[in-house]
Design a protein around this nucleic acid. Structure first.
Lengths: 166, 166
DNA sequence: ACTTAACCCAGCAAAATAGTCAACTATTGT
DNA sequence: ACAATAGTTGACTATTTTGCTGGGTTAAGT
């Protein structure tokens, strides 16, 4: 599992898509504008995402992209895997031409870690991230409202004090 | 947090170092040979690791590198952070010049995820990986032994059958 | 002194990244 | 039917990162 800016772009774009495509398809032009990613680069990424059957492209006016499935079924690891080409993880790679000698020892360790990271990212879905953000937004709004109440209370006190003075 | 081959090399090298430096310092030449990483590239990586105070370099004959601290105190996130230069996570980066408009929304989501990944990797130490591998090795050896027992049993059966036939 | 290593550069080729441009095709509203 | 929209494709380019080579210098053991 590799984590590069390419994967980040893909995840960001998918999040944007999930967030905005509750009804109509979303055009890449919109995503490009919102996320400041070049349109042509997005096209490349979405070509891969489409081939991986994660999004559907709809042509013609009013067209754009939609998620192939539910946001709850789309995890981060799959998005990243879709845009990153599968590189030969290591020198001895799948061929296991580096035998059970010492050279493979720590290399094995890394592979295990890599698997762990993949498993971890596989457990995080688009839906979860949107949910989490939604919760945060609500929390923030509530904080702001609480703050406003405090301010109103304070200004009321202030007015009261002024009344006393005048 | 970025996960590239560079980070993998660094983690692999650190694992090798932790595994072999119970007593004496380990030379980069040894690590290079075991992990098939070029010496000069390792030098670059270890220069950064040293500056990040994760390893100590000892000059002269019998010199090499040792871990600065205990394997239990060294986590994966720190190793990767040490060799990857801190890139401006996004366009609006730390300056937060992209205001509370929609453009930042999904970007925020990614940042949250990125933090999650970092936290996750921060929780995994070199010591844990070595431990885990050790457990696996033992398990594998036990499997092999069990397999041998089965094979012996089978060949005994086979011999028995042959005895019946002859 | 001599060897052994860490340390420190400057540079360089290959690959990956990020983006551009242009031509083409399918779909839809009018 | 026709124009507008928007996906599809491919080739091409600039920049950055990667991984490595090879030249040194400096510190510590023998």
């Amino acid at each position: 599992m590799r984590l590069t800016t390419k994967g980040r772009y893909a995840v960001t774009a998918m999040l944007d898509l999930a967030y905005h495509s509750h009804k109509k398809p979303v055009t890449l032009t919109d995503i490009a504008a919102r996320q400041t990613i070049s349109l042509s680069y997005l096209e490349q990424l979405f070509a891969r995402l489409r081939r991986a059957n994660m999004v559907k492209g709809i042509r013609g006016p009013g067209g754009g992209y939609t998620l192939s499935g539910l946001a709850v079924d789309i995890n981060i690891a799959d998005i990243i895997a879709a845009v990153d080409e599968p590189i030969h993880a290591t020198k001895c790679g799948g061929e296991s031409n580096c035998q059970k000698n010492q050279a493979c020892l720590t290399h094995d360790l890394w592979m295990g870690l890599s698997d762990q990271i993949r498993d971890y990212l596989q457990g995080i879905t688009i839906a979860q991230l949107l949910e989490k953000h939604h919760v945060q937004e609500v929390a923030k709004r509530q904080d702001q409202e609480a703050q406003r109440v405090i301010e109103i209370h304070r200004s009321a006190e202030l007015a009261h004090n002024l009344n006393d003075l005048l």
